[in-house]
Write a protein that binds this DNA or RNA. Structure first.
Lengths: 135, 135
DNA sequence: TTATTTGCAAACCGTTTGCAGAGAA
DNA sequence: TTCTCTGCAAACGGTTTGCAAATAA
């Protein structure tokens, strides 16, 4: 891996993700960055996001209506429980995992739940037979 | 809505989805369709998929590595609990929802679980205040 | 016969890449 | 000074669209 330079563009992107502390789309990030660096190109944001991913400072998610979101990495482990607003399309973290208690808590806090989705991934029986390919 | 014609292309696409009975990507569908209709264009598949979606015969999901999947509609309600193979990238339905028991069952059946994701969507507090927009 | 559907090619749009100049170290 | 990063413009790839020929009804 090459050495990394600290440009104001990269610092700005990182600080936006840190402050929002929720998954953001490229367009959300761009809208905020462009206020402070009016001539910034979207490719610069894509490249910096890529660099932050490689540095393991942020995570990437494919959520909702096929949009891609990035979020500052959680302290301990990757947090992958989201709540998505059907209206404004923003994505928020869920406080915890157990689903039923959690839904009740969400509703008490004023979020109107429409549906939930559970996604589990790993290696299926067929593929597990074929190879021991760990990663 | 206009009248719908039953072309062999559309019948074929629908029957492929019915037989597989799991979420399939456009490319998976295309690979099977092209065997029987060699000159078919992908745009024809996209258009037929769109028509089947409008007819409420199939569902659409954005899963895994930003891929889009389509699956024949379940009898009762929309089934949105998937299990995804990290290796072959195929997507299968989960038999039921409650997550812990389910993970145990999956592992007993030989699926190696790497991670799971819970996604809940609805209307956030802020948006709920603004408007009473039901859909 | 006639209106919808098809195959083809071009357009579209989010993302990626090549490149010369700007800027960090 | 040197080498990475930026802004710009063009390329890329999955999806959509326009159009004339094919086909279901």
């Amino acid at each position: 891996m090459e050495s990394q330079r600290n440009t104001k563009q990269k610092q700005l992107i990182l600080s936006i993700l840190k402050e929002s502390n929720r998954p953001m789309s490229i367009n959300e990030i761009y809208a905020l960055v462009v206020l402070q660096v009016p001539k910034i190109a979207k490719s610069t944001i894509y490249r910096n996001i890529d660099s932050l991913l490689n540095q393991n400072l942020i995570d990437k998610y494919h959520l909702n209506d096929n949009e891609v979101f990035y979020r500052i990495k959680a302290d301990s482990h990757e947090h992958k429980h989201f709540i998505i607003c059907d209206d404004c399309k923003k994505v928020f973290d869920l406080p915890s995992c157990p689903i039923h208690a959690l839904e009740n808590a969400m509703e008490e806090e004023g979020f109107i739940i429409k549906e939930h989705l559970i996604q589990i991934s790993g290696i299926c029986k067929t593929c597990a037979k074929g190879h021991t390919k760990g990663q």
